[in-house]
Simulated scan of single mutants.
Amino acid sequence: MAKILIIRFSSFGDIVQTRSVLKPLLRSNVVDQVDWLVRKDLEGALEGEKNISKLFCFDRKEGLMGLIALGLFLRKEKYDYIYDAHNNLRSFVIRHVLSFLMMTKVIIRSKERMKRFLLFKLRINKFPKPYKAMESYWLPLQKFFNLSKELSPIDWPIGLDIKMKNYVDGKIVLVPSAAWKMKRWPIEHWKKLVELLPEYHFTILGGPEDHFCEEIREVDPARVNNLAGKLSLKESCVMAGHCDFIITGDTGLQQVADLSGRKGLSLMGPTAFGFVTMGTLKTLGVDLDCRPCSKDGRGKCIQDVYQKCMVEITPERVAAQVRTDFPIV
């Protein structure tokens, strides 16, 4: 049996998508130990994952010399395989330090840079439509291991405590924020959605910098709990991984809900690589020739209406879909 190191430093959503390969690897009858190298500030996205034997963290503050030192330290593990699921300069350095003069087989996930160039510079889209990034982490491993033929949802490894359970049972979890503003559903739409669904209760998840979430709570404080900035990354993942229903844009918590097979709505706008895979989240979007225009929400909007692809996903449409997919009994 073999041991493998997965290298995926960031981002939050990509780490969650890469988690989808853990169970297939351990069921392959080839691998019996999976270790992971992640960026230290994102280790919360992997906390509680029982399919990872050893979790190693890299602090960006340590720089290149720290990265090399970490690679030298990890050489003692004598990995049979290294899966570079990140494929950037840092992972290039670490995989070469680890594999130099070793019998280690290196597997690299392609970023398909030519296709990216064609899409984002020339507006020629050669990617599958929709592009399911979770599958792109899984496919490079197939020729090395006898993996199952398709991905399936997995239970989030950490369960809800009683307090968390009260925030999600029978409620809709809202994830209004995202790393880049262009892929956020407008704040006024979130507020209108709460007004349109007076019979529902909501819990908001977000980070400490997402102060705008309080505006949504103020629409109806009796029905809306705002937990933005009050939970750790691990706790937010637990709630997204066990909620009854979630409404989210292209975020890391969307990927948590997708991987965990939760029901909900995915509001997709400018981004190319955040589409869900498992089939339990329903994607809502608008058909515009300019979509997708960004890999992660950065860049400029060319439409006369800023964020037209998000603005035209109306609160009325979302509310109607909620009542269809998550009716109150």
Score class of each variant (00 low, 15 high):
Lys50Trp: 01
Asn51Ile: 02
Asn51Phe: 03
Ile52Asn: 02
Ser53Leu: 03
Ser53Thr: 04
Lys54His: 08
Lys54Ile: 04
Lys54Gly: 03
Leu55Ile: 01
Leu55Trp: 01
Leu55Gly: 03
Phe58Ala: 00
Arg60His: 11
Lys61Ile: 00
Glu62Ile: 02
Glu62Thr: 11
Gly63Asp: 09
Gly63Pro: 07
Leu64Val: 15
Met65Gln: 10
Gly66Trp: 13
Leu67Ala: 04
Ile68Asn: 12
Ile68His: 10
Ala69Gln: 12
Leu70Trp: 00
Leu70Gly: 09
Leu70Thr: 04
Leu70Cys: 02
Leu72Pro: 02
Phe73Leu: 13
Phe73Ala: 15
Phe73Glu: 15
Leu74Gln: 10
Leu74Glu: 10
Lys76Gly: 01
Lys76Val: 02
Lys76Thr: 02
Glu77Val: 05
Glu77Leu: 01
Glu77Tyr: 02
Tyr79Lys: 06
Asp80Ser: 15
Asp80Lys: 06
Tyr81Asn: 09
Tyr83Pro: 01
Asp84Tyr: 00
Asp84Phe: 01
Ala85Ser: 10
Ala85Arg: 04
Asn87Phe: 06
Asn87Leu: 06
Asn88Gln: 04
Arg90Trp: 09
Arg90Ile: 05
Ser91Cys: 08
Phe92Ile: 03
Val93Asp: 09
Arg95Val: 03
His96Glu: 08
His96Ala: 05
Val97Tyr: 08
Leu98Met: 07
Leu98Gly: 03
Leu98Tyr: 02
Ser99Thr: 11
Ser99Phe: 07
Ser99Asn: 11
Ser99Val: 11
Phe100Gly: 11
Phe100Gln: 12
Met103Phe: 09
Thr104Leu: 08
Lys105Arg: 15
Lys105Pro: 05
Val106Phe: 03
Ile107Ser: 01
Ser110Pro: 06
Ser110Trp: 06
Glu112Arg: 15
Arg113Lys: 13
Arg113Glu: 10
Met114Leu: 06
Met114Ile: 05
Lys115Cys: 09
Arg116Gly: 15
Arg116Pro: 06
Phe117Cys: 11
Phe117Val: 15
Phe117Pro: 03
Leu118Asn: 13
Leu118Ile: 09
Leu119Met: 06
Phe120Asn: 05
Phe120Arg: 05
Lys121Pro: 09
Leu122Gln: 00
Leu122Ala: 03
Ile124Pro: 11
Asn125Gly: 08
Asn125Gln: 05
Lys126Ala: 12
Lys126Arg: 14
Lys126Ile: 10
Pro128Tyr: 08
Pro128Arg: 07
Lys129Ser: 11
Pro130Arg: 14
Pro130Asp: 14
Pro130Gln: 13
Tyr131Ser: 09
Lys132His: 14
Lys132Pro: 09
Ala133Tyr: 12
Ala133Ser: 12
Ala133Pro: 06
Met134Cys: 05
Glu135Val: 15
Tyr137Pro: 00
Tyr137Gly: 04
Tyr137Gln: 02
Tyr137Arg: 04
Trp138Pro: 01
Leu139Val: 15
Pro140Lys: 08
Leu141Val: 00
Leu141Lys: 02
Gln142Pro: 03
Gln142Lys: 14
Lys143Glu: 01
Lys143Val: 01
